[in-house]
Simulated assay, not measured.
Amino acid sequence: MSITAAQVNELRKITGAGLMDCKKALTETNGDIEQAVDFLRKKGLAAASKKAGRAATEGAVGSYIHAGGKIGVLVEVNCETDFVARNDSFQVFVKDIAMHIAAASPQYVRREEVPAELLEREKEIYRAKARETGKPENIIEKIIEGQINKFYAEICLMEQNFVKDPDKTVQQFLNETISSIGENMSVRRFARFVLGEGLEKKESDFAAEVAAAAGL
């Protein structure tokens, strides 16, 4: 049978597995979502969810500097043991996450961290736009739900497409690493710095730059 993109996306949301893994699972199970979930779990992806409840208090703070020192990132990634924190695969993961943050500029780690007032403001904007189309309220609410999910995917680290492999989200990349390393891991927090961000040049400095550019 033909497997649709909607089916693949649904399975990805449920399991956090990669795009091709989800498509293969659905193909093998004739599009049955529940059987496809079991198929992926048997392949080892369930290991990540089983480990998710275990305490992860060790780890490392990683850094990444980009654009000749113009952008810098610090990120804390936790794991269960100091042994894994020194593991090369763990260190590579931390570095990759820091690089992703530099490139993708997320604002929050997870959707639960997004302030309620920001979320409501976005919903009101989407609601106003949707009402202009004249669609019924029940359809408008579905449209808003879809727009909010896109909003989360733009600003939340774990829901962004991973810059080194856009076919998977950062959460899926994390799940794969958990399965590979064999310990629970989590991205706890990050800080992204952009040189000069939030600063305003003094008027005299600006005038001097203009004068220099004009040859005065």
Rank of each mutant, 00 (worst) to 15 (best):
S105T: 13
A102Q: 06
K23Y: 13
K50T: 09
V94N: 04
E209G: 14
K201P: 07
L157D: 08
E117G: 07
I144V: 10
E117L: 09
E76W: 05
E120K: 05
R131A: 02
L216I: 12
M99I: 05
K23V: 12
Q147M: 05
F83W: 05
N138L: 02
Y126F: 15
R86W: 02
P166Q: 04
K42P: 03
V8Y: 07
R110Q: 05
D38L: 12
G18E: 00
I33L: 14
M158G: 02
R188N: 08
L19F: 08
V84K: 00
L157H: 04
T81E: 01
L199C: 06
G182K: 06
I97S: 03
A103W: 02
L157E: 12
N175W: 10
F193N: 01
E145I: 01
K150L: 01
N138F: 12
V210E: 07
G31A: 06
V170G: 11
R192A: 03
A55M: 06
G215C: 03
K150G: 02
N184E: 01
G44A: 03
F190G: 00
A128P: 03
F90A: 01
S105R: 10
A214Q: 11
A52F: 11
V187A: 03
G53S: 14
A130C: 11
E10H: 11
A25S: 14
E141P: 05
I148Y: 12
N184R: 09
L26S: 11
E112F: 13
A213F: 13
R86L: 00
Q172R: 03
F39G: 02
T133E: 15
G72Y: 09
S186T: 15
E141Y: 07
A214W: 06
E145F: 06
F93G: 04
R189D: 00
A56K: 10
A17F: 05
V210C: 08
V84F: 09
T169K: 03
R111Y: 04
M1R: 07
G31H: 12
A153F: 04
E132L: 14
H66A: 07
A104Y: 01
R86H: 10
S89F: 08
E112V: 13
K202A: 15
L118A: 15
F206I: 15
E34H: 04
G53T: 12
R110A: 02
K95R: 11
A128D: 04
T177R: 07
I143F: 13
K168G: 00
V73Q: 06
C79F: 01
E183L: 10
E10F: 06
I143V: 10
F173V: 07
R111G: 14
V94Q: 05
V92K: 14
D21I: 11
L40F: 09
V92Q: 09
K70F: 13
M185H: 12
E117R: 12
A212Q: 15
K135F: 12
V77L: 05
I181C: 01
G182M: 06
D82W: 09
A191S: 10
I144S: 03
T177I: 02
V94F: 06
L11C: 08
V61Q: 11
A207S: 13
Y126C: 03
E137F: 14
Q172P: 02
I178S: 03
A48D: 02
E137S: 15
N161W: 03
G72C: 01
I71R: 01
R12Q: 07
V61Y: 08
G215Q: 02
